[in-house]
Amino acid sequence: MLPRRILQFLIIYCLFIGTLMLVKYGLRLSDYVIPAPAAIFQTLLAEYRQYTLATMNTLTVAVVGQVLSVILAFAIGIVGRRSTWFGSFIKVAAYNIQAYPIVALAPILFILLGDGFLTRLLIAAMICYFPVLLSVLGIMSKPVEDIEHFYRATGKMRWQLEVKIRAFENLSQLTTVISGSATLAMAGTIVAEFIAADAGIGYSIRIALYQSDLGKIVIALFLIGITIAAYQGLLELLGSAVKRAWTGNALS
């Protein structure tokens, strides 16, 4: 799983660099616009340490933001699964709010909270929160009738059991949603850093943009891509381990 993810990214990245070079040499663009491969390699050697640290900084914020949003999405999803007025309100609110571009709210957060860790964390969490919430709401609102019937008929159904049954029956979907939300969390953090932070790889990209240094941006993209691929691969491995432990290989 993990090697496959990384290999997929490397193939896509090589295609991207190849296309970039085709454009450069096809249109005879100067090294100032698109640096030559040797110059990109020189930039890699010069910047890899600082950019790796910046990417790890971004990843840390993204992971914390993702964990927070997943916890919150499960809490709200579990409360909102019922066909009550409150449940319907939560569903309608979630569908409406997720349609609003969170990035547009980012300036408000920067004005109120400054450009530190908390703002980046909030934006990362908000961007990956709604897709997870909608999936959790969908899963938790749908009864698994052929399993739940017995517990309802005999009066043994408790909300914890209901949640457990629905989570178990949709385990593959839940693990896919959670590993998929990693990309959103990372994207959210980078966007926040790009707008107005003072740390992280998004901030480094902004500096590189001001310097019109495409080489640095290409290196940053490589580090972002490989980090997301590794993180998603690890999440998928974790998801498989949870599935194996819970189902006794039943779903694998």
């Binding site: 052929d146 399993i147 019937h149 017995f150 008929a153 005999t154 049954i165 178990f168």
Partner: peptide, 13 residues
């Protein structure tokens, strides 16, 4: 009064 049917399942955990 209970109703049971043949396609019911038990949880798999």
């Amino acid at each position: 009064l209970l109703y049971s049917y043949n396609t019911e399942r038990l949880p798999g955990w």
